[in-house]
Nucleic acid binder design. Structure first.
Lengths: 358, 358
DNA sequence: ACAGTCAACTAAACCGGTTTGCTAAACCGG
DNA sequence: CCGGTTTAGCAAACCGGTTTAGTTGACTGT
């Protein structure tokens, strides 16, 4: 009396039950016009009552497409999802993917290997975010021969890409801070998730250049020790800010390369009884949805996060749908500074005669 | 001179090139011990230099597993990702999935049909969040015969599930608000994303019961008009709050069923020149990472969001890995009220002699 | 009455791997 | 030197669909 098998029915079962060939069943679903109308509907009835659904993997194999887009990140998904930036970005990708009937598959390093994760994923193309050219596995990844769109890294010019004006955005933030009189700043950068130990993400390099440009104009140099890098999360911001304080750093302004870090930094400062923006000004980067709602409302560099995801998905889909890989498109989105309440003038007692060095 | 074909190499190509059979190539990768050591390594060399990677779809087909977990939501991904709750939840799922070498595939209604999206997805099991028993497509979904873990819906007892003490959490919030003297409250509920027009999510029903329980104890009834439902996002909270205000509602406290909505409500109130918590108190639900950082810091019902994701993934994996479907486990996580600064006593001028009705 | 056309359907090949069952050669003890 | 066991590798079947290239029989026109 054991259950014979609770297997899902296969196409052959439907064919047998309906007294037709597998081909006919396939036609009933995919090209009903090739069957007599009543045959087609009879087959569909049988299928329905058997609870038959075509096996998606088998279908993919023959059709050579998966109707799925990948989102690849060099970080573990766990760190990625804790940054609101990523949620908004995914939202953008998801909107376009959904519109075109594609599903979404997230790819992160498997047992430390991105290439391995890639080779396991059944996708038609991939949006790679923050994949720097120096990543040890890019070569293996590109060899998969999949359509790729790069986000926030222009380093592989043969692929389409979407990024933002990091330098300009950071420069605007730096100039504003400099104009408030700040000369002693701390930069919080995002760490590259390189498997060979933390390095510096491309994004970090570009934004740092923007900050430095801005301060160079007022004759101030931002020394290397004034930049700390860590994970782009609230916790990361807290940790970095505390470390800086313990190291005796007493900047009048903090330039964070992500809103999450900025929020973390403000939290740490509050715990240290430091007033923001009275004692220390804080600027973020991203302008996440919550930036206006934190306390104090965050001054930050806006980037169109959702649109970034949308553009990336759109670019990818044009490559995926027509197989036309010609001239990869590079799209750069604008940034702009949004001044809110986390920034203010240098406190009087900290006004230095800095800028001129004597 | 046209490129012959830029195809990725197949197993047969490697076999030919190495002068062995397909079987041997397969063995070289999957059971090298069945081959002479030098044959195996020679094959792997050839494969390496040809850039061969086994086709993931073909592999799935024969191995009958995909090494991928699905996360299913009845809402569009675009609405889902805009709620920070979901990011944290996904983080929990992702941690466990990664640990076990599984990828993550997000499933949302395709052309309005969840069942269709399900049947396209190549996954070994699925975490279904907020899928109420009344959903028109549950029957089709369960027929896929996949392992399922339900989150925030206990309605299908034959599947394992993870949820939280919604009633208790809401009751705690309600009691606290009542104890502050509030008698005139507005409830912001989350809308069920039923394809047949917006209805009420299971979660909403349970939390509403908790609120009502609490107020019943002080002899106050929350009438139906005092509950508005909408999408669980900041924008949703803004919209609902404004609508309530326009409708002439002047509650002294707002009970929101999601932090995102609570934040939206506070934002709308600020725009209306209403002080929180001076004029109106606001309570959220979820305790997202940012809840302590908004202005004012949000009083809310804490639930272990990440752990919820982790538990769901763990439960799912035990079912997926041993095929043992016996006794589905139901796990309920605790909630607790976290009092911060968005709540306070009823303003003096609004103190009614309510509670006794004459 | 007969070649030609069309409609309705099917057998077999194919997608790209894995797995089973088998064979040939090498090895082994007596 | 011989039967039995291992070792190394292969051919073919299989996973569950789709697609190509027919096949069959009814219908058409002359």
């Amino acid at each position: 009396m054991a259950e014979p098998r609770a297997q899902r029915p296969r196409i052959a079962d439907v064919a047998r039950e309906a007294g037709v060939s597998k081909t006919a069943v396939s036609f009933a679903f995919n090209s009903p016009e090739r069957l007599a109308p009543d045959t087609a509907s009879r087959i569909r009835n049988v299928a329905e009552q058997l609870g038959y659904t075509p096996h998606p993997v088998a279908r993919m194999l023959t059709q050579r497409q998966t109707m799925t887009l990948g989102v690849l990140t060099p970080q573990a998904l766990s760190v990625i999802f804790s940054n609101p930036f990523f949620g908004a970005f995914s939202e953008g990708v998801a909107v376009i993917a959904e519109e075109h009937g594609y599903g979404l598959h997230f790819i992160s390093p498997l047992h430390g290997s991105l290439a391995q994760a890639m080779s396991r994923a059944t996708i038609d193309g991939v949006v790679a975010v923050g994949l720097s050219a120096g990543h040890p596995e890019v070569e293996e990844i590109r060899r998969a021969g999949l359509p790729i769109v790069l986000v926030d890294s222009t380093a592989l010019p043969e692929y389409a890409s979407v990024d933002i004006d990091d330098v300009g955005g950071a420069r605007a933030a730096g100039e504003y801070i400099a104009s408030l009189g700040h000369r002693d700043v701390l930069v919080l950068g995002v760490e590259a998730p390189a498997p060979g130990g933390p390095g510096q993400a491309e994004v970090t390099t570009r934004r740092l250049r923007g900050y430095r440009d801005a301060f160079a104009r007022v004759g101030v140099e931002i020394p290397g020790e004034r930049m700390l890098a860590g994970p782009a999360s609230i916790a990361g911001g807290v940790a970095l800010m505390n470390r800086a304080w313990e190291d005796g750093l007493r900047p009048t302004a903090v330039l964070a390369m992500s809103d999450a870090m900025a929020i973390g930094a403000m939290h740490a400062l509050r715990d240290l009884r430091v007033d923001v923006p009275g004692d220390v000004s804080v600027v973020g980067f991203d302008d996440i949805d919550l930036a206006p709602h934190v306390d104090p409302p965050l001054t930050t560099v806006h980037q169109p996060i959702r649109r970034k995801g949308e553009e990336a998905a759109r670019l990818l889909l044009t490559v995926v749908e027509r197989r036309d890989l010609a001239k990869p498109e590079h799209r750069r989105l604008e940034t702009r500074l949004i001044v809110r309440a986390s920034t203010g003038p240098v406190p009087n007692h900290r006004k230095e005669v800095a800028g001129d060095r004597h």
